[in-house]
């Protein structure tokens, strides 16, 4: 018996490989190919109802289902963590419907589905990063009409977005957008990187992995091919900057990772720890130790 049929036997009986029917996968695959050919452009697709509500990654799940093969190793993260509800349930979904191997190790994964983070470890060629996207249109909150936003993209007319960033500066003295920070892909389309912290924006530039974006409710797929220029929008006198943390991770001591605040009790005890759980666990396994819990402010 071949390895393939063994894999399929482990999967839940009664479902096609990776849940979706073949015609749906072909439709999604054609949209993905056009998305890759036109970096940053949002390709409409006939998003299906999935066995999870909108907002829980239905777009990402459909893209992953169309990409996934029996030899892939899947990792799913939610805000950087492998062990939160959304990540656990999507990982189990594909374990059951595709019988694929799963991992929490970024380096071992071939397909990584993510909600709102890019792993800290540098991604490599051959990996596919699938983003779950709630609102794919970066101009949506500035121009609610789809007919108009399509025209603005057709004309590469992104003045509105610069006005929004400028108003940030006028009001706050700096660009106050901290997540879903708009990027320009390969010098043409302005794209929403999904609600990742802007801390992750530089990782998208010249990334060796293929980045795919799926928005289920809004029915859009877009992509950034490997080694593509991804520039965060900014001004000459207000260049793009990522946030810095004034302390290292309490557990692993990493000074260069994105930190989550963990509240420990109602008396002000708290920890700042890596949002990327695999990054933190890997560093601790290597012997790195953080400063631990800080004294609560009096």
């Amino acid at each position: 018996m071949s390895a393939v049929s063994e894999t399929r036997e482990q999967a839940l009986a009664g479902y096609n490989f990776a849940y979706l029917d073949e015609q749906t996968k072909r439709m999604i695959r054609r949209a993905i190919l056009k998305a890759v050919a036109i970096p940053g452009y949002q390709v409409p697709f006939a998003s299906r109802e999935m066995p999870m509500p909108y907002g829980w990654g239905t777009g990402g799940v459909q893209v992953t289902a169309a990409v996934l093969g029996p030899d892939d190793v899947l990792k799913v993260i939610d805000q950087g963590a492998d062990d939160t509800t959304n990540a656990v349930s999507i990982r189990q979904f594909f374990e059951r419907t595709a019988g694929v191997a799963t991992t929490t190790r970024t380096a071992e994964a071939t397909v990584i589905q993510t909600r709102h983070r890019i792993p800290e470890a540098t991604l490599r060629a051959g990996q596919v990063l699938v983003f779950q996207v709630p609102i794919p249109e970066p101009l949506r909150f500035l121009e609610p009409r789809e007919t108009e936003t399509r025209r603005l993209h057709a004309l590469a007319e992104y003045g509105l977005m610069h006005v929004k960033l400028y108003e940030d500066i006028a009001r706050h003295g700096h660009i106050a957008t901290t997540y879903a920070y708009p990027v320009e892909v390969s010098g043409r389309y302005v794209m929403d990187p999904s609600p990742t912290p802007k801390f992750d924006n530089p990782k998208m530039d010249d990334c060796a992995a293929l980045q795919l974006f799926g928005a289920g409710r809004e029915r859009r797929i877009y992509a950034v091919p490997p080694h593509t220029r991804v520039r965060s929008l900014d001004f000459a006198d207000h260049p793009f900057e990522v946030q810095r943390f004034d302390r290292p991770c309490a557990l692993c001591g990493a000074a260069d990772s994105y930190l989550d605040e963990v509240v420990l009790d109602d008396r002000g005890r708290r920890l700042f720890v890596c949002s990327d759980t695999d990054h933190c666990a890997t560093r601790r396994a290597e012997g790195h130790v953080g400063p631990g819990e800080e004294e609560a402010a009096p």
């Binding site: 996968k25 990409v67 293929l210 091919p225």
Partner: peptide
């Protein structure tokens, strides 16, 4: 068809 698609996807990417 998944294998063919991945080859084509890699080719275009």
């Amino acid at each position: 068809s998944q294998r063919v698609f991945r080859a084509v996807l890699e080719a275009l990417a």
